[in-house]
Amino acid sequence: MQKEWMEVSITTSSEAVEAVSGILYNTGIKGVSIEDPKDIEIEKKRPQDWDYFDEDVLKVKDGAVVKGYYKDDENFEKYLKYIEDKVNNLGNYGIDKGKGTVTVNKVKEEDWENNWKQYYKPYRAGSRVVIKPIWEKYNPKRDDIVVQLDPGMAFGTGTHETTRMCIKSLEKYIRPDTRVFDIGTGSGILAITAAKLGAKYVTAVDVDRTAVESALKNIKYNAVENIDVFQGNLMEAVCGKADVIVANIIADAIISLTEDAEKFLVPGGIFISSGIINDRSQDVVEKLKGSGFKIEEINVDGEWVCIAAKKDDMK
């Protein structure tokens, strides 16, 4: 029996694509796709030697349609009202919302899958890391690290700003002898990236059984053997201490996690936290400092923040 999903379509400007996607990620979203009306025209103009997808190419003047997919449950109307209010208010932040229309349709699961897959292409997430959907071809460049992903419909494709910033931080902090804990692993994208960057051992945890199953599947696609995946939270699922902990979740969860993260890091270890909306970044910074961390760097992409903090060497 096919499942039905609620498809929310926002017609907006290309300038507002990231902001609109961010609005959707603040709700109970189960998947996001971005459609551009000039995809075909751009494909015709694309140089033959391009072998990876650059999302900036899709920012054309005529705008785009951002689609979000939701379960048809008691929370949907609340999410829809939130989306409509936030899209209408984009102009207050100096962002051109374009038409700014929000429409809703019911779609079958199979139709959704066919829809979003055609817009998900290989893309460069860091200086070396390229994320490639398993159904696409990609010719790697020298020194490329290719992560193959089938995110399924319950997880993002890895193109979100928070994921990109985490990947860039992992590129910076992973060393050959590094042990990594990935908290809230989802599709496993960050755990797999850490392993392919040379981490010695990776533990990935998530409270959601579907996430654990998705991560295990993607680990097999990438043929990495130094990752263990567990269902549960940090305290329940891991033992020992890590050199790097990465958590791409939300600000409130990071604040709750911070004291435990400090206990599970070696002295001088790095805590990479993302999924933080700009308005909450100072709350996270204060919690980190109060828990014995030194802020190493704060990176911002659109409305989102990624913080890398170092545990006190003396603890």
Results as ranks from 00 to 15, higher is better:
residue 224 V to D: 12
residue 201 Y to I: 05
residue 196 K to S: 02
residue 129 V to T: 14
residue 226 N to E: 08
residue 204 A to D: 05
residue 182 D to T: 09
residue 172 K to S: 01
residue 229 V to T: 06
residue 156 G to Y: 01
residue 168 K to W: 10
residue 175 R to N: 11
residue 225 E to I: 08
residue 163 T to E: 11
residue 141 K to N: 14
residue 228 D to C: 02
residue 217 K to A: 03
residue 204 A to W: 03
residue 167 I to Q: 05
residue 177 D to L: 02
residue 172 K to T: 11
residue 154 A to I: 02
residue 181 F to S: 11
residue 159 T to M: 09
residue 166 C to V: 00
residue 134 I to D: 15
residue 221 Y to I: 12
residue 212 V to M: 05
residue 157 T to S: 15
residue 167 I to C: 00
residue 211 A to N: 07
residue 139 N to L: 14
residue 199 A to V: 00
residue 206 D to S: 08
residue 183 I to V: 15
residue 166 C to R: 08
residue 170 L to F: 06
residue 136 E to S: 13
residue 189 I to P: 12
residue 211 A to M: 11
residue 140 P to W: 14
residue 135 W to H: 15
residue 227 I to K: 03
residue 190 L to A: 00
residue 129 V to G: 07
residue 127 S to Y: 02
residue 153 M to R: 14
residue 187 S to I: 01
residue 191 A to D: 00
residue 192 I to H: 05
residue 219 I to A: 10
residue 166 C to E: 04
residue 157 T to H: 13
residue 216 L to V: 04
residue 169 S to D: 04
residue 217 K to F: 09
residue 129 V to F: 09
residue 146 V to S: 11
residue 188 G to W: 14
residue 142 R to Y: 08
residue 177 D to A: 00
residue 155 F to W: 11
residue 141 K to E: 15
residue 134 I to F: 14
residue 210 T to D: 12
residue 155 F to A: 08
residue 204 A to P: 07
residue 136 E to P: 10
residue 224 V to Y: 07
residue 182 D to L: 01
residue 216 L to P: 10
residue 194 A to E: 04
residue 214 S to F: 07
residue 217 K to Y: 13
